[in-house]
Design a protein around this nucleic acid. Sequence first.
RNA 1: GUCCCCAUCGUCUAGUGGCCUAGGACAUCGCCCUUUCACGGCGACGGCAUGGGUUCGACUCCCAUUGGGGACGCCA
Length: 488
Amino acid sequence: MTRVRFAPSPTGNLHQGNIRTALFNYLFARHQGGKIILRIEDTDQERSQTDFEANIFADLRWLGFTFDEGIQEGGEVGPYRQSERLDLYKKSLEKLIAEQKAYACFCTADEIEVERKRALALGKSYRYQGKCRILKPEETQEKIQSGIKPSYRFKVDRDIIKFQDLVYGEKVFDTENIGDFIIARSSEIPVYLFACAVDDCLMQITHVIRGEDGMSNTPRQILIQRALGFEPPQFGHLPLILGADHTLLSKRNGSTSISELKQKGYLPQAILNYLALLGWSPPEAEEILSLDQLIQQFDLSRVARSSAIFDWGKLDHINQAHMLRMSETDYLTFAKKQLEGSSWISSLSPSELDSLLFTLRPNIKTFNDLSPWLSILLVLPEYNSEPAQEAFSDPTAKKVLESLAALLQEHEAQLKTKEFENVMEGVKKQTKLKGKKLFFPIRITLTGVHEGPELIPLMSALGKERILERIQRAIETIQHKESAKRAV
RNA sequence: GUCCCCAUCGUCUAGUGGCCUAGGACAUCGCCCUUUCACGGCGACGGCAUGGGUUCGACUCCCAUUGGGGACGCCA
């Protein structure tokens, strides 16, 4: 049975990088009909916060992930929060100490820091020199009894570690480059490397799929797992996601939390779809895929080995594609949720709002584009933009508007789409204008800008009253300009 | 600096020795559709980092160079 895990630490919110890792684990597990476990790695007590943990759960749920085992789901190999598994790690540590595979280290953080800096200055990679490794048992006992709290190091002997990476193929590491590393802090809390290695085995994880930045940890974890008598899981490393500056995604260069992405108006399925395309490619040409389709098509053998740069433009495109494919009710529900709290919701009747939202659908890339558009459509335009000046300086503009106003007056308060079409036909006949000459002045009059939704639907969404109000305003603007011109 | 990884259009990628005159997607530009913009359709632009091998034949295999990235914590 395939068992994978997603193991975030609650020291921050989930962002694109995390989610891509979660996604690939998820797709891998679901594709194989295996299980995915959610484990919280909170061994850094100073930085871990329960708020973050709650956010992580909320984000994962929003994105559409479901887990088979975890804090909320339960399961047989829990607890699923590392801070509740300390006795387990302690047992493992004691076993290693008893077998002389780990030892107490009394070097202080400051001492180590000095050593590291010296090594780096000399152009050598830092490794612990093993000062406490050669301590006699009596010396160790003595120091502990005198009240010094030691950290614990794993004893690394010369060896060649080989493993078959699920993505990168055969990997070979010489332990010569690895010094004895710390597995438990002087506070007795284990470090990530150790807790993670122990848990992956205790929780019977079969495949560890993580970012390539974890690669150098892998030989250490294999060492730990073997020393504990476990069979290490299989490892697969994923190429990294980089920011626009070609370095690891971070707050500086575009790393964005899920809640921010949500705020920016991206659909969960679009986020997942785009992230799946970063480092993986579907076997067939179609790129717009639902989560189910991704599960069906996913295969680690199609994962790339080179890092990928996060491209907001493509995310926008994929988001738009998903928006266009959503059912009308889903679209409206999501759009309204996004607009929650904004004045548009309260200032419009439900049917007016729905009709405006539909009219805007082909013109937006994210749900966040909705609000600015509504503002353009519903706030009276100023007509001082360049396209407006240009449109109104055409002598036929006024004729078009007057004709439109007159024809609209002939109708009852509420016109249907078909009637708007007829009105436009009428304007066309009366003015003998068509194409840009006909539509441009009207578009500008209604919105103040030269681009936007289709005109007929837009007119019917705005309604007769708003249109007349704008026409009057536009005509006044034109007249104002004309008289100013005459005065000169 | 040391170790590790990577290298196809600006970006994401297909490509596993002949199907490649290198395919697709985003972006950009043009045309068409729409009596307008957008949506949609069609098209253009644009790439195998360099140098050596191996081979009848290299984008594909090997080596080097160059370039980029990652890891070198009592962080995860």
